[in-house]
Amino acid sequence: KKSYVLIKVKNPKTKETHTIVVPEENLEEVLKALASQPNVKVVDIERFP
């Protein structure tokens, strides 16, 4: 059974918020990819039960 993680990201320029759902096993690479985006800020990470 896969567990999923909900990542909320915000664009500081446009103030838009997006929610991305990723499998927990991919969380680290997704966070690394997001960290390299200049106008993306991770605001929240939630685990799915």
Rank of each mutant, 00 (worst) to 15 (best):
E46I: 14
V5H: 02
V43F: 03
L6T: 14
A33F: 14
V9A: 02
S36G: 11
V5I: 05
N11A: 02
V40N: 04
E46Q: 13
V40R: 05
A35Y: 10
E28T: 07
V5P: 01
E29A: 10
A35C: 06
V40G: 03
N26R: 13
K1Y: 05
K1N: 10
V42L: 05
L31S: 01
V9H: 02
K10G: 05
K2R: 09
P49V: 08
E24V: 08
P12S: 15
E16V: 12
N11C: 11
S36D: 08
V21R: 08
T19K: 05
I7L: 04
S36F: 08
V21A: 05
E24M: 09
A33R: 11
Y4M: 11
V22Q: 01
K10Q: 14
E46K: 12
K13D: 09
V30G: 01
V5E: 01
A35D: 05
H18C: 13
E46T: 14
K32D: 05
V21N: 03
A35G: 07
E25Q: 06
N39Q: 07
I7N: 00
V42S: 01
E24S: 06
A35K: 09
K32E: 07
P49H: 11
Q37G: 03
V9S: 01
P38M: 04
K1E: 13
K2D: 13
T19M: 10
P12H: 15
P23T: 11
L34G: 00
R47F: 14
K10A: 12
Q37N: 14
K41F: 08
H18Q: 06
E29D: 08
S3G: 12
K8L: 12
K41Y: 09
P49Q: 10
E29H: 09
K2I: 11
L34V: 03
D44F: 15
V43N: 02
K1A: 10
R47P: 11
K8M: 11
N39V: 03
E25M: 05
S3P: 06
K8T: 14
N11K: 03
K8N: 04
V22R: 01
E25C: 05
N39R: 05
T19L: 11
E29N: 08
V21I: 13
Q37M: 13
P38C: 12
V9D: 00
V5C: 05
E28L: 12
V22K: 00
T19W: 14
K32R: 13
V21D: 01
H18F: 15
P12L: 15
I45Q: 02
L6D: 04
L31E: 01
I20R: 02
P23N: 10
V21S: 06
I45L: 04
K13L: 14
S36C: 11
S3C: 11
T19A: 06
S3H: 15
E46R: 15
F48Y: 12
K15S: 11
A33V: 09
A33C: 14
L6H: 15
V9K: 00
N11R: 03
E46C: 13
S3L: 12
V5F: 13
F48M: 11
K1Q: 09
V9G: 00
E24A: 07
T14K: 03
V40L: 14
K13E: 08
K2C: 12
N39E: 08
I7M: 01
T19I: 13
N39L: 05
Q37A: 07
N26C: 14
T17A: 04
L34H: 00
K10S: 13
H18T: 10
N26H: 12
Y4V: 07
K15I: 03
I20C: 08
N39F: 05
E16Q: 11
L34D: 00
K41P: 02
P23C: 14
K41C: 15
K8S: 09
V43K: 03
H18N: 06
H18R: 13
L6N: 09
E46W: 06
K1I: 09
T17H: 08
K15L: 12
T17V: 14
L31C: 02
I45R: 01
Y4I: 07
P49F: 05
V42Q: 01
P23G: 06
E16C: 15
T17K: 05
I20Y: 11
K32M: 10
Y4S: 03
E28M: 09
T17L: 10
D44T: 15
H18Y: 15
